[in-house]
Design a protein around this nucleic acid. Sequence first.
DNA 1: TCCAAAATGGAGTGTATACTCAAAAAGTCG
DNA 2: CGACTTTTTGAGTATACACTCCATTTTGGA
Lengths: 183, 183
Amino acid sequence: MARYQVGIRTERKILEATRELLSEGGLDAATLKAICDRAGVQAGSFYNIFPSKEQAVMQVAREAIQAVDPDPEDSGTETLDDLVDAYIRFVTDQSDLARIYLQIAVSSSNDDSVARRFLRHHVRRVERFADAMARESEASPADTTAKAEVLLGALDGLAFRWVLDRSFDFAKHARFAVAQCRR
Amino acid sequence: MARYQVGIRTERKILEATRELLSEGGLDAATLKAICDRAGVQAGSFYNIFPSKEQAVMQVAREAIQAVDPDPEDSGTETLDDLVDAYIRFVTDQSDLARIYLQIAVSSSNDDSVARRFLRHHVRRVERFADAMARESEASPADTTAKAEVLLGALDGLAFRWVLDRSFDFAKHARFAVAQCRR
DNA sequence: TCCAAAATGGAGTGTATACTCAAAAAGTCG
DNA sequence: CGACTTTTTGAGTATACACTCCATTTTGGA
């Protein structure tokens, strides 16, 4: 039942090809054919590993986010600055994937399962922000959650702004937002 | 040659059908076939009026954006609360348009005329927010603009959040954000 | 009433897409 | 090796899409 090594290697090749294509040309460029061509693989192999193209795209997005996660183990030691820095790094370093992330999230509003996944991710992130805030000052829990929601909203909104205009200084405004939040 | 009345009526029917479909199911739902079916028109008629589907969608988006920005003259008397209330009303009352707005903006490519239009609209709104803030307290202009950018980012982000989960209390968090901004 | 321009119907085209399937090949392990 | 499982192949399917073509009908001004 254990997977063969060659299959795992193929999975990596496919994910890498998908990641490259998403970075280069966005969602539209990452067609099944393009992914398979670049990975040097046939469509059948793709579907031997992934149930759908969307699953592969989602996994790429997930890995990109994890790659900048300051505390993947969720040990509860990260600071608010750690979290904000991670967000900034994701948006500035993995800019193309950040755009894809927004694109998928916004266009998934009809498809419940995808929207729920994004929502779950968002909620978890709000909790981590709120926990980090609670660690550095003692306000009421309800207030802290609302504050975290607003701060994360500001980061999302500024990222959206940045998608429209790449000359926008995202990092500066993100730091401004968190400073204002702390006041 | 002057256009016939019937052609103008057909154009309105097509635009109306497009607007409805965009509201109901987003960009994906507004296929050429769906638009023509709802407008009670054949594909040939559509292309007698519009050079492409994209043009029709663009025109709908343009009209929607104008509807959201009813005072481009900026008479200079609106308060920050006025602006935030208008935003809240737009998101809660015109929820479908809000979603389309996000969807089109985020899926338009970077150097697109569409993206530029959204950006121009955003920048103008930031200016109005900043002006309103300046009227109720005297900080440095640069600081005020950054504050306006963050506040509007927060509103955009919270709207995005609300698109993912309609049980989210957008109005409450929006007011929380502006209160925090004023502190 | 005439008639050229405008509008329409609607079948048809080309293209791109995600995805399937059964047979063949290759990997794993006793 | 030999039995068993996983992986790969690659042609093939189904479908959806924007858009075209042009004969026919309708319009509205002179």
